[in-house]
Structure formats: structure tokens, C-alpha cells
């Protein structure tokens, strides 16, 4: 078989557009997911049982169903009930809701890993549970959370390739478009893998730097 370098040189700049979109999707969905996950994680630690059940159900649903189905639900099923999102936003929302569920578990776990005496000391100076969480537990939970959070962002970035299924013109979709016209799946899928690999490596490197820059105590 012949490796067609011409199609590779042709594809490299075109795929760069896809990379930009993949980054845009991943970062926006990542931030949104962090917000959702933080709120849901705090809610799962609340003293109000209905709130905890709600989060429990949300996390269970996300963990128990494939991401692709969740994406389709938001893109194809929501319009049926009158909520039509453009493909970019449908994709971002689906990824954010998905990663929010996992992040809420990360938050819950990290806060739960803080030594029990910390909460007791905060209660003993008159704090309510909310105050304990906000002023004492969360500030200490950031450190143990960061590795898991960056890991989640990496997963999200890889998952964003599923958005090609709803025509979001991200990296995978950009590659498929070239394959469709040039019939070079071997070269293109290898190239896509390389693009993702470099992207993920950069993210891992940035996350390690972030971890090291966190305050030590």
C-alpha cells in the first residue's frame, strides 16, 4: 500500500480549523461542566434530602447511558418539546451535562476526603453546614480535586469527537470531510489520532504545571 503524503500535506491546515473548534467546544463545555459539577457536588453534600436525591438521579442517568445517546437526546429529542439548539450549543450542553455529573462526584469525593476534625472545628466556632463547606472544606478540597478535574477535561476533549455525529465541524468531522472527498482513511485517521495525541499531551503537561503551582501547606 502507498502512503499518500500529498493528502497529508493537504489535510494538515484544514484540520487546524477542526482543532480550533475542538478546543472551543472542550473549553466552553469544560467550564460549564465545572460549574454544573460544583453546584451538583455541593448539592449532594447538602442536608436537604430531596436535593441529594435529585443529584443522585442525575449522576445515575449520566453514568448509566452512553454519551452518544445523551448528545442525540439534546440535539434530536429536545426540538420535539420545542427546544431547538444549534449543533454547536447542543454539543457543548451535552458534553457539559455529561462531565458535570462526573465532576460532581469528584467534588463530593474530595470534600469527603478532608479530615473529619476540620468540619468539627468549623462547627465548634458556630458555622452552619453551608459555612463549613464554603469556608473550610472547599478551599482545602481544590488541591486533591485538580488531578481528577484535569483528567476529566482530557476525557471531555476526547469525547468531543462524538459531536461529529451531529455535524459539529470539529477535528474528527473535519477529517471525515476530507476522507469523503479524497478516500484516504488510513492517512487521515492516523493524522487525526496524532492531532488528538498532541492536544491531550499539551493538556496533561498544562495540568501537571497547574498542580505544581498550587499552594502547599
Amino acid at each position: 500500500m502507498i502512503f499518500d503524503w500529498n493528502v497529508v500535506w493537504y489535510a494538515v491546515p484544514l484540520l487546524a480549523h477542526g482543532v480550533v473548534m475542538t478546543l472551543k467546544v472542550s473549553l466552553v463545555a469544560g467550564l460549564l461542566g465545572l460549574g454544573i459539577g460544583l453546584l451538583a457536588g455541593l448539592a449532594s453534600l447538602s442536608s436537604l434530602a430531596p436535593l441529594r436525591w435529585l443529584v443522585r438521579g442525575y449522576v445515575d442517568f449520566i453514568r448509566g447511558t452512553p454519551l452518544l445517546i445523551q448528545i442525540f437526546l439534546i440535539f434530536f429529542a429536545l426540538p420535539v418539546v420545542g427546544l431547538r439548539l444549534p449543533e454547536y450549543w447542543a454539543g457543548v450542553v451535552a458534553l457539559a451535562i455529561n462531565s458535570g455529573a462526573y465532576i460532581s462526584e469528584i467534588v463530593r469525593g474530595a470534600v469527603g476526603s478532608i479530615e473529619k476534625g476540620q468540619a468539627e472545628a468549623a462547627l465548634s466556632i458556630g458555622m452552619t453546614r453551608g459555612g463549613v463547606l464554603w469556608w473550610v472544606l472547599l478551599p482545602q478540597a481544590w488541591r486533591p480535586m485538580v488531578p481528577a478535574l484535569t483528567n476529566d477535561l482530557i476525557t471531555l476533549t476526547k469525547n468531543s469527537s462524538l459531536l461529529s455525529a451531529i455535524s459539529v465541524y470539529e477535528l474528527t468531522r473535519a477529517g471525515q470531510a476530507i476522507i469523503a472527498t479524497h478516500f484516504a482513511p488510513f492517512e487521515l485517521y492516523l493524522l487525526l489520532a496524532l492531532y488528538y495525541y498532541v492536544l491531550i499531551s499539551l493538556l496533561s503537561w498544562a495540568s501537571r504545571r497547574l498542580e505544581r503551582s498550587l499552594p502547599q501547606w
Binding site: E115, G117, Q118, E120, A121, A122, L123, S124, I125, G126, M127, G131, W135, V136, P139, Q140, P215, W217
Partner: peptide, 30 residues
């Protein structure tokens, strides 16, 4: 609970705060 001050066997100071911040946390936030 504020009517009691509690001193723990293992101190349970807040490790992310300085001594002053540890002591000031209650007056500020409570």
C-alpha cells in the same frame, strides 16, 4: 455552639490559613 469553645486533642487548625486567619475566621464568617 458558639457559647462553647472547643479545643480538640489534635488541634484541628485549618491548614490553609495562617494563625491570624484561623482565629479570625469565626468572627468574620460567623
Amino acid at each position: 455552639r458558639c457559647l462553647f469553645g472547643f479545643v480538640f486533642q489534635r488541634f484541628n487548625l485549618f491548614p490553609h490559613l495562617t494563625a491570624v486567619q484561623n482565629v479570625a475566621l469565626g468572627p468574620r464568617r460567623v
